[in-house]
Nucleic acid binder design. Structure first.
Lengths: 223, 223
DNA sequence: AGATTCATTTTTATAGATAATTTTGAATTG
DNA sequence: CAATTCAAAATTATCTATAAAAATGAATCT
């Protein structure tokens, strides 16, 4: 299932720009490159054995995703974020995921809900944050995808990436897989066709992640 | 006020990529370049007196905005759209603008509402679709901006651009400025601090634009 | 010593050149 | 005559080189 997901995204891999974009996005999201870090095009050009042109194109994509900020003639740096943006992203996710769920609901089969349950269990047994986040993303995706709204899903994906950054920045060391009550409640409501309950739970769930995750520290450039 | 808005956006104008991006976005949104049209990098490089590198970077930005689609090694073409996407964008706008309004409401001063009213009047006297759309965008923006959520506003702006495309494609010839009842109702509700009414009206208003605008035709490549 | 100017170095932004892939169209074959 | 193959042309993707801007740091001046 994770493999399928990867294949789906692999339009990117035919082009150098695509590979660089994904590699950098991954590092930024995982916190491997800290907020505020200057990204030098020649550095990455050398690292990926490419020239700086595809690196620049990758920068433009990351910029659009909100993962880097670009000051003309001064280069790009990894986007900083503070608690306000964590909340903002959480609110946006809540609104849009509820919208997606409302449209997906009529198309949810029991097969889909079963798979969602399996994914959820996998998440509860995840050995680390990263695996848990992967399962979390997959859970949300599988119940929302049937809305058949590609633009909406793309926007939600970007917000998920932002959320993941916050998550990794806040929970880096101490962490253990929680049994996800919210996910279970959402599934139960969907199974019983109580869509309003499911939507309300989903909204609360997403906002809760928002408040809990990044509440402690601000991630800014070392100045 | 329009000048201020332009200055705000002028980070773009220091770089050739920025200028090309804006020029192309404008043409695509206005319908000057039809959906499905292939965009050749050398062509625009020559037109703007630049090399094709900044043109390619502009393409990546437009791609992220959903204005063009890019097939690796096959170039980019202006994004097509159909009634499903018109609806999708309308629903997304409704959700996100309601969210923005909820957060903006506490910060709305009567000065802001007065200005919104002035903008609304200007829209009602607009000589053509383009001017009306400009006023419409300004109206939505001025009452939502105080939410202080930059990422949310950026996403709403992108959706507005998409909406404008649909608008221009549908209403090109026959059109006359309507007295915008919805805008007035929203303002009245805001003045009386009936935020739920304002939000509900806003949502209905945005979705109505969505259904009315693009309902007739599908805009696809001439094939 | 601290601040400031100016030259040096680094880095970005763009241009020009090359390689690789797709499209086009004509010639060939069934 | 339709379909298919193959070569030529057009176009994209990438690389190397150049120009322009900003950051750095040493030397000078107060």
């Amino acid at each position: 299932m994770q493999i399928i997901y990867k294949i789906m995204k692999n339009e990117s891999d035919t082009t150098i720009t695509g590979r660089i974009t994904r590699a950098l996005a991954d590092r930024i999201i995982s916190g491997d490159i800290a907020p505020g870090t200057k990204l030098r095009q020649d550095h990455f050009a050398e690292e990926f054995g490419a020239s700086h042109v595809p690196v620049r194109e990758a920068f433009r994509r990351l910029e659009a995703q909100g993962l880097v900020v670009s000051e003309p003639r001064r280069g790009v740096r990894v986007a900083s974020f503070d608690i306000a943006e964590v909340r903002e992203v959480a609110e946006m996710r809540a609104s849009l995921e509820v919208l997606a769920l409302r449209h997906a609901a009529p198309h949810l089969t029991s097969a889909i809900l079963d798979e969602a349950e399996a994914i959820n269990r996998a998440g509860e047994n995840a050995p680390d944050v990263r695996a848990w986040e992967e399962a979390n993303k997959a859970f949300h995706r599988i119940i929302l995808e049937p809305c058949n709204m590609p633009r909406l899903m793309a926007t939600i994906d970007d917000l998920h990436a932002a959320s993941a950054r916050f998550l990794f920045s806040g929970f880096r060391m101490e962490w253990e897989a929680p049994t996800d009550q919210d996910h279970r409640a959402i599934l139960r409501a969907l199974q019983e066709h109580q869509f309003d309950v499911a939507a309300a739970t989903l909204a609360r769930h997403v906002k809760w992640i928002g408040t809990k995750t990044g509440a402690k520290r601000h991630m800014r450039a070392p100045s």
